[in-house]
Simulated scan of single mutants.
Amino acid sequence: MSGPCAKKRVLCTIVTPRGERFVGENVCASPQATCPRAPGENYDKCITICGQEGHAETVALARAGDKARGAHAYVEGHTYACRDCQQQLFGAGVAALTIGAPPVVRELEPA
């Protein structure tokens, strides 16, 4: 059973130039009631204890694959993207990174 990170829920949405969306989240395979990391501690326990697949940004990148080139990434639930995630996003060809929600997609109403 997987669940949300006890410390903070983070989402990353990669929106391609064609409007396709790929979402990653920092879910845990073994969610904890409280975060096992001490303040300032690295993310090793996220993997070893919580079974986190990765940061939301890396999960979204894995889902987007080559379609990330030229895309725009949006990170919600955090005030920044860590240096490693920034390097991975831009290394994959993501053109822009915004801290905040992606634009709302509005469906066209039938005529």
Score class of each variant (00 low, 15 high):
N26A: 14
T48F: 07
Q52N: 03
Q52K: 11
R37F: 13
R37P: 01
I14V: 12
Y43S: 06
V15G: 01
K45R: 13
N42K: 02
I49H: 04
E41Q: 07
P17C: 13
R18S: 08
P17Q: 10
C12M: 05
P31E: 04
C12G: 01
Y43D: 01
V27Q: 05
V27C: 05
S30M: 10
G24S: 05
G19D: 02
T16Y: 08
K45A: 13
T48I: 03
E53H: 02
P39G: 12
I49Y: 04
Q32P: 07
T16L: 09
K45N: 09
Q52D: 00
P39K: 10
V27L: 11
V27E: 01
C50E: 02
Y43C: 08
I14S: 01
R18E: 03
N26M: 13
T48E: 01
I47E: 02
P36T: 14
V10S: 04
N26S: 15
E53Q: 06
E25L: 07
G51E: 01
G40S: 05
E20Y: 08
R37E: 05
C50T: 08
Q52S: 07
T34V: 15
G24R: 04
I47G: 00
T48L: 08
C28Y: 07
V10Q: 03
G19Y: 04
T13A: 14
V23A: 04
A33P: 00
P39A: 13
R21W: 06
C35S: 13
V15S: 00
T16Q: 04
V15E: 03
E20N: 07
P39D: 02
K45Q: 13
I47C: 05
I49N: 00
R21M: 07
V15K: 00
V27F: 14
R18F: 04
V27R: 09
N26K: 14
Q32R: 14
P39F: 13
L11E: 02
Q32K: 13
R18I: 04
I49V: 15
C46A: 14
F22R: 00
N42P: 10
S30T: 15
G24T: 10
E25V: 15
P17G: 12
C35W: 14
T48A: 08
S30I: 13
Y43R: 05
A33R: 09
